[in-house]
Design a binder for these strands. Structure first.
Lengths: 336, 336
DNA sequence: CTGTTAGCGCGTTCAT
DNA sequence: ATGAACGCGCTAACAG
């Protein structure tokens, strides 16, 4: 571990000349520069980040905060955020909150410690309180949720996919295939993730003049075992009662496939399924799942780019990037 | 953004008293402590990390370096490393190398910048050169590979699973089910990941007196599409020619299932499959894959704990933790 | 118990 | 072009 002082001693120059030689900023003779560079190499000099940060206020680190590290949905985003940051010479600190609103507040508050230069956060609890803390942090923050209500703010951006539209597209697709009795397998509808999807489903039914039947809406919890349990129970209680199903994420869709297999319901002949998320799991099941891609990769990329624009180019105004979900056809839907 | 100087001005105390009041270290009257705490709250004081780090040499960050962020195999490790670090008040910086040996060297070299307190690294290119750099970094490093040859070193530990044994267990299991013709679907055998698995397969055959037949060893690349392509090609060329197969990871196993489905080979009746890795994908396929759990979670946990012992408790001697893989039975193997 | 002082290592300003 | 001096914000040793 050597410092610019060591190099100074080695070359007979002052530390400040060494600093200038190394940074290339300020006056410095060619001769000195060469001497310094040689000595730096010889002493194996590497600047200590903490000292740089203390002076420059730049940490070269960004925090990426996701609700749940156990959900494969976020993997693509993680990868892509990581890729873009790396391209920009930045490191990613990954944290997760377990969907806990209190923990989100805590994490946002850590921004004040200034150990990162900004943050990308995916939360389902955006409210005045959280936004206040974000505003107060004084650092650029990118949200990967829709949050129109705060669009007048200055220090944050959004990159998100329209959940409502995704559910609409899934429902519409299955309706267009001739299905009349189409159910919904959804998680907690008190969270944005849930209620926006329910709404998309309802709107599609409405637009296609299919009456909404609340008996066809099955509540679960966005997990595989949850999906399996809820759908099994539904089958036991009400029988199949539908020819098509929109599962609000892949995991629940897979749980549903397992429930059907146990009950000898043949897919897609007796039941067509469309899921939301289009994770890699969709092409591992049988039948392979037709699914709506939520643009995780693009959300991650755009979020990271927005943040880099703020940090590196000093952009000051707010950008909201809305991305359109896209249906990927596989083999889980039957044309009636 | 306020500092201890601001608090000093507010309370009429000196910055050092403020520091002592806040840290609880050193003498400080109750009265002063209370005044300081009040002022700190009022001024919304949060210590700046860079300044702390510069002085204390502690960053509260650890780097986790994996070869490939696109392989789901690593996600359990990421989760668990993250969990343990968080428990210890540490943050995880996630980086990946794309299996590039040169990049691994670069990343190890960044340790000298002292922006983390240690590192967990999973590499398949451990050699003198890399070990030299690790040694030179002066920071604790935990390897998540077997690497006996360097066991005399001082500044690193290992937590790993025995790949050879995993392949052995998989092969043994399928042999015990009465299969005589058992193939292997493997990736690049120049890397540790490949050759150790090949070796485990061979040893099991030997122990069970089954002659090794190189025609039954199919080379691929550890991806789903690769597994699909290689196995399809094999089928076209040689026909099935086996009743059991050990796929060296889940992704290739899934590719194999798809190839069989296309060729109307019925699983597990015509072909039994055991995979290595036991990722979540195993319970999404049909039939569900019997697979060898590589203890990713435990490797992650132990690696993180080893590192924390070094960093927080100052342990100085080397520990090598070897974990045993464990077979998880599902429905992809037929008893003959 | 408190305040003064002196770094941590780097960057920047100001004389020279 | 170079060096001296100072500040970033916190910590710790020392003197009082």
């Amino acid at each position: 571990m050597s410092t610019i002082y060591d190099i100074g001693r080695e070359t007979g120059l002052s530390p400040s000349t060494v600093a200038r030689a190394l940074s290339g900023k300020g006056y410095c003779s060619e001769e000195a520069k060469i001497k310094v560079q040689k000595a730096a190499k010889k002493l194996n000099y590497i600047p200590v980040q903490a000292a740089k940060s203390l002076k420059s206020k730049i940490t070269k680190k960004v925090m990426f905060c996701i609700p749940d590290i156990y959900n494969p949905y976020y993997f693509d985003m993680i990868r892509e955020v990581n890729r873009v940051l790396e391209q920009n010479g930045y490191y990613m600190i990954l944290v997760h909150t377990g969907h806990d609103a209190k923990k989100e507040l805590e994490i946002v508050d850590t921004l004040k410690e200034r150990f990162v230069d900004g943050m990308i956060i995916l939360s389902f609890h955006f409210d005045d309180k959280l936004m206040d803390r974000i505003r107060n942090s004084g650092l650029p923050v990118v949200l990967t949720n829709r949050c129109d209500s705060y669009a007048d703010e200055e220090n944050f951006d959004c990159a998100y996919v329209d959940y409502m539209k995704a559910a609409y597209i899934a429902t519409e697709y299955i309706l267009k295939k001739g299905h009349k009795k189409v159910g919904l397998l959804v998680g907690d509808i008190r969270e944005q993730m849930g209620y926006e999807r329910l709404e998309g489903y309802q709107r599609a039914l409405q637009d296609y003049k299919i009456p909404y039947d609340e008996k066809l809406v099955i509540y679960s919890d966005f997990t595989k075992t949850g999906g399996y349990a809820s759908f099994s129970e539904y089958l036991k209680r009400d029988g199949l009662g539908m020819t098509g199903l929109v599962a609000c994420n892949d995991l629940m869709g897979i749980g549903c496939i397992q429930a059907c297999r146990e009950t000898k319901i043949v897919l897609p002949e007796q039941l067509s399924i469309v899921t939301l998320d289009n994770t890699d799991y969709c092409s591992c099941t049988y039948p392979e799942l037709t699914s709506v891609d939520m643009r995780q990769t693009q959300v991650g990329q755009n979020a990271a780019e927005l943040l880099m624009e703020r940090i590196r180019q000093g952009r000051r105004y707010t950008k909201m990037i809305s991305l359109m979900p896209r249906l990927v056809e596989r083999n889980s839907v039957l044309q009636l």
